[in-house]
Write a protein that binds this DNA or RNA. Structure first.
Length: 215
DNA sequence: AACTCGGGGCA
DNA sequence: TGCCCAGAGTT
């Protein structure tokens, strides 16, 4: 793990999502939109979106169809537009128009699951957390930080044990970057991988992919 | 546990 | 052109 932390720190010394600088409300919306969709697409859409909508009331001031149209370049946009309006209604009615800081409150919001809540508490409210998405899950299992059949929650628990608490948030971002650009689901760059000595798959991944396909 | 949403990225 | 994906809700 020490080797991993050092190397990934060198690879991504300043790793952070572009979402970091946003306020809690915009961060929540942005992360909700990012489900099953690349950050790049979300960033393109939110440039105009956050100019048009600044407060929960702004999202409720337009018909659902208009909001759907405004985020139509994002996958699952019909669901997400609905989630956003329901979420804004709850923020206004139950949280004085603000995003709640407690993880438990966040996951009650529509469209906000464990992953989104972790990102919000860690990036908006400074609470160390590791949000396990498919990238983090894949990288963690390949590098042997978790077992291949571990659930997302089990992966999260194991990473929290392995990584010092003060490094959770930044390491999470580095894991995302590593998974996105190097340890990709398809065509990972194993030939030049600095983590090769840790990897449980490596060149065997082709065989694993083949087995998975045969099922 | 399986199914659904869905346009964009990439081979 | 077809497959996969920076999740979460529903049944």
């Amino acid at each position: 793990m020490d080797h991993f932390l050092r190397v990934i720190g060198e690879m991504f010394p300043d790793a952070h999502c572009e979402l970091n600088h946003r306020n809690p409300f915009e961060l929540t919306i942005a992360v909700l939109l990012s489900a099953q969709c690349t950050d790049e697409t979300v960033n393109k859409v939110t440039v105009d979106l956050f100019q048009k909508y600044q407060t929960p009331a702004d999202y409720l001031a337009v018909p659902l169809e208009e909001l759907q149209h405004d985020i139509r370049r994002i996958g699952l946009f019909r669901n997400k537009a609905m989630f956003i309006q329901k979420l804004c209604r709850i923020l206004i009615d139950e949280h004085d128009g603000e995003v709640p800081e407690k993880h438990e409150q966040l996951t009650k919001l529509p469209g906000v699951g464990r992953k989104t809540a972790n990102v919000v508490v860690s990036n908006a409210f400074g609470v160390p957390a590791i949000a396990v998405d498919t990238h983090v899950e894949r990288v963690s299992k390949r590098l042997g930080f978790a077992k291949s059949d571990d659930s997302v929650l089990e992966v999260e628990k194991k990473l929290m044990k392995l990584i010092p608490r003060e490094l959770w948030t930044e390491t999470h971002h580095r894991l995302i970057f590593f998974g996105r650009y190097h340890c990709k689901a398809q065509n990972p760059q194993c030939e030049v991988c600095p983590m090769a000595e840790l990897c449980k798959e490596g060149k065997g991944r082709m065989k694993l992919a083949l087995n998975r396909k045969a099922k």
